[in-house]
Simulated scan of single mutants.
Amino acid sequence: MAELISLKATARARAGKGAARQARRDGNVPAVIYGNQETPETINLEYNELWKQVLKGRFTSTAIEIDVEGKKHIVLARDVQVDPIRDTPLHVDFQRVGKDGVIRVSVPVRFVNEAASPGLKRGGVLNIVRHDVEIFCPYDKIPSFFEINLEGLEIGRSIHASALNLPEGISTVIKNRDFTIATIAGALKGDDDSASTTDAAAAPAGDAKAAAPAAGKAAAAPAGKAPAAKAAPAAKPAAKK
C-alpha cells in the first residue's frame, strides 16, 4: 500500500494571476485546496520539496497530508499544471478527502509470467484494454498496482475485472459488468495473407523465367526466312471430247 506524502505549505492571502506570479518569483508553487463542502484555500508550496515528490512518481494517485501553518489536510492531487518548456510545476489543484476517507483513484495494472503463457509462446499478442483500473478505496490503502498472472493462458482467453485481487474495502468504479482488462489475441490475418501473397508472386516469376527461352525462339522466327508454303496441287487437265 502507498504511504502518505507529507508537505508543508503557507497560506496565500490573495488569489489571482498576480499573486501566483509573485509566489513563483519567491521560489514557491501556488496551489489551491478545495472540496468536501468547505471553502477553498489558496496556499504556497516550497518548490524544491514539491518537485522531489513529483519526481518520485504516482504523485496524483497517492494521498497527501498538507500542513498549512499547523492545520492539516488530507488531499489528493487532481491536476498539476506544468511549464510547457521546462516541464516544471506551475500550479497544483488538491481535492480534500471526504469524512468517510474514501477516494476515487486510478491504479496501474502490471502483467507477470508472460513467458509461461502458451498463447504468447505460439505467437499470440497481449492486447491490453485497460492500463489502469479506477477504484474506490480508503485514502490510506491505495494499492501501488494490480498484478495479473498470465501463466497458462491460451490464445483467445480474456482477463476480466473479476481476476483482480481486491483487498477488503476496495471496489471498482464500474460495478454493473465484469469488464475486460486484456486479451490474448492470435496473429493478425494480414501476416498470413502477406506470406501467401509473397509465395503466389514468386511462382509466376519462376514460370516466366522458364517460359522466357521459348518466347525468345517464337519471337525470333519472323525475323528469319519464313518456310516456303506447300504448293497447291495442280489442276487436272480437262478431258478431251
Rank of each mutant, 00 (worst) to 15 (best):
W51E: 15
Q95R: 05
P108L: 00
I33M: 08
I170W: 07
P118N: 06
D87N: 12
D192A: 15
I103E: 01
K241M: 04
D199I: 12
T42E: 09
D87K: 10
V133T: 05
Y139E: 00
S106W: 01
V82C: 06
A239Y: 03
A219W: 10
N48R: 15
K217W: 11
R58T: 08
N149C: 09
A239L: 14
K99C: 00
S61N: 15
E168I: 07
E41T: 06
A232K: 14
K241H: 07
V125E: 09
Q95K: 06
P227Y: 08
K99Q: 07
R78Y: 05
S144I: 10
F94D: 02
I128G: 02
R12H: 09
Q37A: 15
G18F: 06
A195G: 00
D140R: 03
Y34E: 09
K241C: 01
P143I: 13
D178T: 08
Y34T: 04
P213V: 04
A228C: 01
R130E: 09
P84S: 08
V97K: 01
A185T: 10
I74L: 10
C137H: 01
L164V: 07
Q81Y: 03
E154L: 14
A201T: 13
T183A: 11
E46T: 04
G18D: 14
D132Y: 08
A220K: 14
K8T: 15
R104F: 02
T172L: 09
K209W: 13
V107G: 05
E134D: 15
E147D: 10
P213H: 09
V54E: 14
P84Y: 14
A238V: 13
H160V: 03
A232Q: 12
A195M: 10
A9H: 12
V75Q: 05
V109I: 14
A13D: 14
K141P: 00
T62W: 00
G186M: 09
P227F: 07
V133D: 04
K141Y: 00
A239Q: 13
C137Y: 04
P138H: 08
E168T: 14
L166A: 10
V29M: 11
D83I: 06
S106T: 05
A20L: 02
I181Y: 06
F145R: 07
I170G: 04
A77M: 02
